[in-house]
Amino acid sequence: MFTKRAFLTLLAICIGGGTAYAQSDPLPSWNDGAVKKSITEFVAKVTTQGGPDYVPPAERIAVFDNDGTLWCEQPIYFEAAFALDRVKAMAAQHLEWKQQQPFKAFLAGDKKALAEQGEKGLLTLVAAAHSGMTTDEFAKSVADWLATAKHPRFNRPYNDLIYQPMVELLAYLRANGFKTFIVSGGGVEFMRVWAEKAYGIPPEQVVGSSGVTQFRLDAAGKPSLLKTAKVQFIDDGPGKPAGINMIIGRRPILAFGNSDGDHQMLQWTMAGSGARFAGIVHHTDAAREYAYDRPSKIGQLDKAWEEAKAKGWTVVDMKQDWKKVFAFEP
């Protein structure tokens, strides 16, 4: 007989996440093994009341790098792809760029001349794409780009290239009382446009690099914030623990990254007292995504990898530990 108790039990399962399978295995896209076990055992330790490693919910802070940790970052950082596309779109309103480097080389497709401009040239292009407009105008430009731009290899929108196992991990942590943050070298206003829909992380829990904004009133007296080309804060390398301290105000107990740009964030997380977790996503799957580490110009993993091996941090082998990389895979 289908009793009221049975009905309420079924209803609770549906409301709580869909299926009994989803409840029994909160990380279905992760292969069983040492890596998955290290995650679930850590969560069990810090959430078991009365246990020696129990951590109150307010202190369950988890931080994640974005590029290469939560979504793909090859062949170039996606925000850089956005910036270059935006410079092309803006060129008609900036005829002077045809005579100014690095714009002249970029717009003409002169790769040699552009390479001669070096990192400074690339930063100039990125700054042009991120400044001279209000914060609202910039957010719209990001949303419009994501709605139309396609990744050169996968031919899918860039925000389709989000790692399904990491989305599950974020949800699993939040279900166990963690507060999840992005701590990325990417631009904070670029990520805030889409991060909540992609990861369930609201704008106020995104820490990133930022430029200076200026308050202004237009002719009608309407206030806005104007994005300038001046850099305010670089949230990369040693800047990551500084950004965590400045914005979050608590030392995390769990941190995930994928490159040497995350090294100091991982070190600082592990230097705290009590139970700690440091994880690294190692890109080993050239078939489903990309394979790279030490020699890569994007997402180089060298020193952080060595310390992870020496100290027993968790290193995720993408090829071995993930059943799928992206949600659109079979």
Rank of each mutant, 00 (worst) to 15 (best):
T9F: 03
A12D: 14
I15M: 14
G17C: 09
G18M: 14
S24I: 09
D25E: 10
S29D: 15
A34L: 07
A34H: 08
K36P: 10
S38Q: 14
T48W: 03
T48G: 00
Q49R: 13
P52I: 06
P52N: 08
D67E: 09
T69D: 01
C72V: 05
A80F: 04
A81S: 13
A83K: 00
L84I: 04
R86S: 04
E96P: 01
Q101K: 12
F103G: 07
G118C: 07
E119K: 11
E119D: 11
L125V: 11
V126S: 02
G132V: 09
T134L: 09
A147W: 01
P152V: 08
R153D: 04
P157T: 12
D160S: 14
Y163A: 03
M166H: 06
E168A: 09
A171H: 14
A171T: 15
Y172T: 04
V183Q: 00
G187C: 07
M191Y: 08
W194Y: 14
Y199I: 05
V207A: 04
D218T: 04
A219N: 10
P223V: 05
A229Q: 12
K230V: 15
D235T: 13
D236L: 08
G239H: 10
G243C: 09
N245L: 13
M246Y: 12
I247M: 14
L254H: 03
G257Y: 00
A271K: 13
S273G: 02
G274V: 01
G279F: 00
A286R: 06
A287W: 01
A287I: 07
P295H: 07
A304D: 11
K309F: 01
V315I: 15
V325I: 15
P330D: 12
